[in-house]
Design a protein around this nucleic acid. Structure first.
Lengths: 136, 136
DNA sequence: ATATACCCTATCGGACTAGTAGGATAATAA
DNA sequence: TTATTATCCTACTAGTCCGATAGGGTATAT
């Protein structure tokens, strides 16, 4: 299941990508437009900022804005920041690999082989979709 | 993340598919071979039975056995029984559709469009992989 | 100064996961 | 018939995560 955190995060990013200018947009504005709890959204935007996707400005007229061009932000990046690994199991994760306790031999493991295929097919979608694609 | 329930379930099914005969195999035997907690495995095999994938026999020489030919069991079936919907969000689920509370228009929702693509690509893998494929 | 808006930590109820416990039921073997 | 085997079923639990809320602290603009 996709967490609401990720869902809201993508919605917020898309909202920002749709803006004509790169002027800051306040949390409250995004919150109202996208029907997202303001405090929850606050924490999401903060992590997106900490991970280099957003910039922010305090005070009147402040808010969050995209740092990069939407077409340079693939969804792999967004997913990994908000949702974590794209793979369904640590033993098939590219960025967060971990061996299974119970499995003596990965190569012989049926689940392992299946999940590698699923990972690759999802990865393909996320890699080929940028924030720009989503905001059209 | 794939639950251990699903992981163990697939391992057990694969184990049964590898058997030359369709004689019953006891929970204890599968448990030892696949390093799965016996009680946990018990509940998993029971749900697989209730969902028509396994048959069972009580008493000495009893256990679980596959009902169908492994090549007639696509992984979509297994995943839906053990893990639930294949889609990452109810609003893109084929079998368990549910509308989002916050989303006024699905067609305009960026997350919706993205997750439909992910669903389709995963579905493709699960549909094209049978239990027979995994047991080779 | 004061209002605005982001920044940060802490907390919390509810749901879910991965088991465990303990016995009921059915089939087989002696 | 009785003992043994092995599935069937219900209930419980510790731990973890999710989604959200509370309550301030800090920086910026008028």
């Amino acid at each position: 299941m996709l967490s609401k955190k990720t869902k809201y995060g993508i919605k917020a990013l898309t909202y920002l990508a749709k803006q004509e200018s790169r002027n800051p947009v306040s949390i409250a504005t995004i919150s109202k437009s996208e029907n997202i709890s303001i405090k929850f959204l606050e924490s999401i935007l903060l992590t997106l900022k900490k991970n280099g996707l957003l910039g922010s400005k305090k005070g009147i007229g402040g808010g969050y804005y995209l740092i990069k061009n939407p077409k340079d932000i693939p969804m792999t990046t967004v997913m990994r920041i908000l949702e974590g690994p794209i793979a369904m199991m640590p033993c098939v994760s590219l960025n967060y690999y971990e061996k299974c306790d119970d499995c003596p031999d990965e190569v012989k493991c049926a689940v392992h082989r299946l999940m590698i295929q699923v990972r690759d097919s999802s990865l393909k979608v996320f890699r080929n979709t940028t924030l720009e694609d989503l905001s059209n």
